[in-house]
Write a protein that binds this DNA or RNA. Structure first.
Length: 682
RNA sequence: GGGCCGGUAGCUCAGUUGGUUAGAGCAGGGGACUCAUAAUCCCUUGGUCGCGGGUUCGAGUCCUGCCCGGCCUACCA
């Protein structure tokens, strides 16, 4: 097979927060694939960069009192430090805020313009008069125009599911300043994606560019009707690149971010005296993007459209993965399962996570779960108990003699392992890592019984059996090394340690095809520690205690150091009078019945007692946070005079009070003991 | 409501184009060993393959209806 030329990218992490275990699914998945391809002798270039533009970056920088450039520089350092800690072997890590990227954006822009694909439209958008910026939907909140639910985001209502524009919200406010936004018109530039419809139909539905479920998804959701124009500009102020022929307008972050893949390649080329076109305008080059399912749309419609228009290589494949859950749930800050990369590294070896993710990852875009108990037991029993154990139980017996000059008869064990190489390689190639892991561990499973049966510890007591002892250990150590070769894309450090043990580097997949003979064996050094429960506990505990941003710690001196994040997410409302407050009749109520509403995703149906025979039926969006059985009997605080609301499942006669962002993080209010149903809250 | 993926031993999963008594790892039980990081090895308990129809000589494997779970959607990108 001739050597392939492969450019690989992982999605560009956004420069406004730290890397956490969820991000790492992707970087580990990609890095394994890259290391595998390198081991096969293919020519690889693995590039990434920080995604640095957009409103959110401006806000983060402002909040920290520094310039955007200082902010993204700081984050970039953190990101690269974290990635290095997990052994992510980028060839180049750039930034979308680079001269190369600006230049390339211009090139794409010209190509799109001259193809007649850019149109200009007036857009009316909410504007924060205090901060003087336009507000994306998620930065506006207000009361739902359909169901009057308070505190809904600008695009749709959590409570009734209605969708609308932020301008339709009642009493809207900016989540940045709390100010009331005003409508303001501005000019936006759009890409006429519909002009590329035929091309996108063809590209997404043919060949092996996408996983089949992704191709179906695109067909069913977008390609069955005319494609909308894509808004790719934002008016000032905006942190990004100003459009050269459109002063006062900037490219939207999602326009320049993917171009960052090319810009990062360009930087690498410049440093290594290579030609960018030989990577991005060369039919011999394969381009593989690894992304999460949340950004499917951008990478499978816009991006191929842009590349096509500007005459760059199209991706050979966009590999899409799912999200991470921990212990079967969304990562949770309060449960300590929202673990930052840097926190993990303080407590555990990165190889554990690389191995575990690999053992869970397949070629589909299912979510994967990090069950912490399973994590420990799998790593300990597979890697320590089976793999490393092979070396640690035999290496010292041949430390003085080295390996036998001829590879002894091993009943075909090594040959079997060598023969499995193709199948394992095919699994790696297809991103079917869990299959690869299974096949490899099967090999290790065959090796330990061999050692058991050969009893080297008995052989060494009999000087006449010295040759046999050397043979047995030669076999065991070669089987060990063969397994490590196959695992090396997952476990780069173990591969290095194994290279040191034999004084022979592992540098090619085919190193698993030929046993080592007649050479020395160095002193065995401990290779991999077992995971102890207390390490995991310490990591979880530390994650619980972490506060959102470093700056918060500087400004808070109380012993509790509560984060200011909740207030930032939802600034204080306008002042109201005591009379305003008195309009709301809050009452203590007892939950006397609680049940699931089978058709609803978020709702529980509650029957509340206000004492005596006074009953209210209330639908509450707390299904993800509370078990109905556990609610029955407890006291809550309800809004008792809220206008009843007809819902799909029945009439809701009030609401119960709770804090938290929603989903599983909802926290009901409870009165102190002594309160009884029916009492008003003053 | 629509789309996709899944539902196989307590847990995590494998079961190739339908073919003989459904497998592995972990956990559980019993035993062995002591070289090894309380690692390893042997034996063993355990399954109406979500449910009901159908095709077939034969179905975990194909078709169909339903139930359950996850994710994505619900006219937003």
């Amino acid at each position: 097979m001739t050597e392939r030329r492969i450019l690989i990218t992982a999605a560009l992490p956004y420069a406004n927060g730290p890397i956490h275990l969820g991000h790492l699914v992707e970087y580990i998945q990609t890095d394994i694939w890259v290391r595998f391809q390198r081991l096969r002798g293919n020519q690889c270039l693995f590039v990434c960069a920080d995604d640095t533009h957009g409103t959110a970056i401006m806000i983060s920088a402002q909040r920290h009192g520094i310039t955007e450039e200082e902010w993204i520089e700081r984050i970039s350092q953190e990101h690269q430090h974290d990635f290095a800690g997990f052994g992510i072997s980028f060839d180049h890590y750039g930034s979308t805020n680079s001269p190369e990227n600006r230049e390339l954006c211009g090139e794409f822009w010209s190509a799109l313009s001259s193809a007649g694909l850019i149109v200009v439209k007036e857009v009316e958008q909410l504007f924060d008069p205090e901060k003087e910026i336009f507000l994306a939907d998620r930065f506006v909140k207000g009361t739902c125009p359909k169901c009057q639910a308070a505190d809904q985001y600008g695009d749709n209502c959590d409570k009734c599911g209605a969708t609308y524009t932020p301008a339709e919200l009642i009493d809207p406010f900016s989540t940045l300043s709390g100010a009331t936004p005003v409508l303001r018109k501005s000019t936006h530039h759009f890409v006429r994606l519909e002009a590329l419809h035929d091309f996108l139909n063809e590209w997404t539905q043919s060949g092996d560019h996408l996983q089949s479920e992704v191709a179906n998804y695109l067909k069913g959701h977008f390609l069955h009707e005319p494609l909308r124009d894509w808004d790719v500009s934002r008016p000032a102020p905006y942190f990004g690149f100003e459009i050269p022929d459109q002063p006062g307008n900037y490219w939207y972050v999602w326009f320049d971010a993917p171009i960052g893949y090319i810009a990062s390649t360009a930087q690498w080329c410049r440093q290594h005296g290579e030609n960018l076109e030989s990577w991005w305008k060369n039919p011999e080059t394969e381009i593989h993007h690894f992304i999460g399912k949340d950004i499917t749309y951008f990478h499978t419609l816009f991006w191929p459209g842009m590349l096509k228009s500007a005459g760059f290589n199209l991706p050979s494949k966009v590999h899409i993965h799912g999200f991470l859950t921990v212990n079967g749930e969304k990562m949770s800050k309060s449960k300590g399962t929202f673990v930052k990369a840097s926190t993990y590294l303080e407590h555990l070896d990165p190889q554990y996570l690389r191995y575990f993710y690999a053992s869970k990852l397949g070629p589909r875009l299912d979510d994967i779960d990090l069950n912490l108990d399973e994590f420990a037991s799998k790593v300990n029993s597979d890697l320590v108990g089976k793999v490393v154990n092979l070396a640690s139980r035999t290496a010292k017996f041949v430390q003085s003699t080295g390996l036998s000059t001829e590879y002894p008869d091993d009943q075909g064990l090594f040959a079997q392992g060598a023969a499995a190489g193709d199948e394992i390689a095919a699994a790696y190639e297809a991103c079917d890592y869990n299959r690869a892991v299974r096949l490899i561990i099967e090999l290790a499973d065959r090796a330990n019984p061999f050692v058991e049966q050969a009893e080297p510890w008995k052989l060494r007591k009999d000087p006449e059996q010295a040759d046999r002892l050397q043979d047995v250990c030669t076999i065991a150590l070669n089987l060990f090394r063969q397994v490590v070769v196959y695992l090396s894309p997952l476990l780069p450090r173990l591969a290095e340690q194994t290279s040191e043990l034999f004084g022979t580097p592992i540098e090619h997949w085919d190193d698993a095809q030929t046993p080592l003979t007649g050479q020395g064996v160095n002193k065995f050094k401990h290779m991999l520690k077992r995971i102890e429960q207390k390490d995991i506990e310490a990591m979880v505990e530390e994650s619980k205690n972490e506060i959102e941003s470093e700056n918060d710690t500087e400004t808070t001196n109380t012993p509790w150091s509560d984060s200011d994040q909740p207030l930032q997410d939802e600034p204080l409302a306008e002042t109201c009078t005591i009379d305003d407050f008195a309009k709301v009749d809050l009452r203590v109520a007892r939950v006397i019945e609680a049940e699931h509403v089978p058709e609803a995703n978020k709702l529980l149906k509650l029957t509340l007692s206000l004492g005596g025979n006074e009953r209210r039926q209330v639908f509450a969006g707390i299904k993800k946070a509370y078990e109905p059985e556990k609610l029955v009997g407890r006291l809550v605080v309800m809004v008792a005079n809220l206008q009843p609301r007809k819902m799909r499942f029945g009439l809701s006669e009030g609401m119960i009070t709770a804090s938290g962002p929603g989903g599983a993080d909802v926290f009901l209010l409870s009165p102190d003991s002594g309160a009884v149903p029916g009492q008003r809250v003053h």
